[in-house]
């Protein structure tokens, strides 16, 4: 039981970062970014390249990967989404699918299809009261908690954080209050890309690095964000933890390859019963 908890927590923590990233960009830009999975993948591969090809320490490589994807996300916005701000969310959605396909295949082009892993020293798992916790899980726990606390502090207590929440809350009023939307959007993309890349690094640490890794996480990421009510970034974190647990518990009576189906069933049930999310209050939906 305790082991289940630890594994569920790990799954949930990994999901928390991209779910937060997705909800963040949705809250400010009002469109669901399907390319989030490919940001995860690109982050993992850039980190792998810095770690293995350049032989840099793992944590340095992870920072390089995150910064690279943060810049990538900002550039893609400047190249693609910025020209479509006035279009409907659906058109942006389809455009983000195009971005996802292109990015994933750029990765395939350079890295091929075979799975890889990071160059990190292997350590023996530790035992706390009969529960096995391996080094990777500890790294995941510390990294995710660190990142979440940092984001939360920025959100809560800085001018920039207020600006992001203000644009998400009421974009028209934000512009009247002197907030330059374009700059906020750039920051949001940088944050969204950086967090997704970090998640890619952690997934690579937990399992392996392959071109479709982000794709495999797409459905759980969306489910976690919807659990939180899609437009509330911090609730998405809670959604991720709930989903992580649910997936882990489901392995008690379902084969592990059906985790995706668990995510889908949870999402479907939620959309039919509580589309405003597990924690949120009801908001007006068309």
């Amino acid at each position: 039981m305790g082991q289940l908890l630890v594994n569920g927590l790990t799954t949930g923590l990994i999901l928390a970062l991209p779910a937060l990233a997705l909800a963040l960009s949705f809250s400010v830009l009002r469109f669901a970014n399907y390319a989030i999975g490919s940001y995860v993948t690109v982050g993992a591969f850039v980190t792998w390249w810095a770690n293995v090809a350049l032989a840099l320490p793992f944590w340095v490589a992870a920072i390089i990967g995150s910064v690279a994807v943060a810049s990538l996300a900002v550039s893609i916005d400047a190249l693609v989404y910025r020209h479509m701000r006035e279009r409907s969310g659906l058109t942006l959605l389809v455009a983000s699918m195009g971005v996802a396909i292109a990015l994933e295949n750029v990765v395939r082009l350079f890295a091929g299809n075979s799975p890889r892993s990071f160059d990190v020293p292997v350590a023996r798992p530790q035992r706390f009261f009969d529960i096995r916790v391996n080094q990777e899980q500890l790294i995941i726990l510390i990294t995710v908690l660190g990142a979440l606390i940092l984001v939360w502090l920025v959100f809560r207590f800085t001018r920039l954080g207020r600006a992001m929440r203000a644009v998400a809350d009421n974009a028209a009023l934000a512009s009247v209050r002197g907030i330059a939307r374009g700059r906020v959007i750039a920051v949001v993309w940088a944050l969204s890309g950086g967090l997704s890349a970090l998640a890619g690094v952690l997934i690579g640490l937990d399992t392996s690095i392959e071109p479709q890794m982000g794709w495999n996480y797409l459905l759980p990421i969306f489910t976690a964000a919807i659990l939180g009510g899609i437009a509330s970034p911090m609730a998405a974190v809670a959604g991720a933890l709930v989903l992580g647990m649910a997936e882990e518990v489901s392995t008690l009576f379902l084969p592990p390859h059906y985790r995706m189906i668990v995510a889908f069933v949870i999402m479907a049930a939620l959309l039919m019963l509580r589309p405003w999310g597990l924690f949120g209050t009801k908001w007006v939906q068309r």
Partner: peptide, 20 residues
């Protein structure tokens, strides 16, 4: 394999460019 990737990069890019 390279061709398949290139082709999909082209498809993804074209999709985006056309939508813009």
């Amino acid at each position: 394999a390279t061709l398949a990737s290139l082709r999909l990069i082209a498809v993804g890019t074209a999709l985006v460019v056309l939508l813009i």
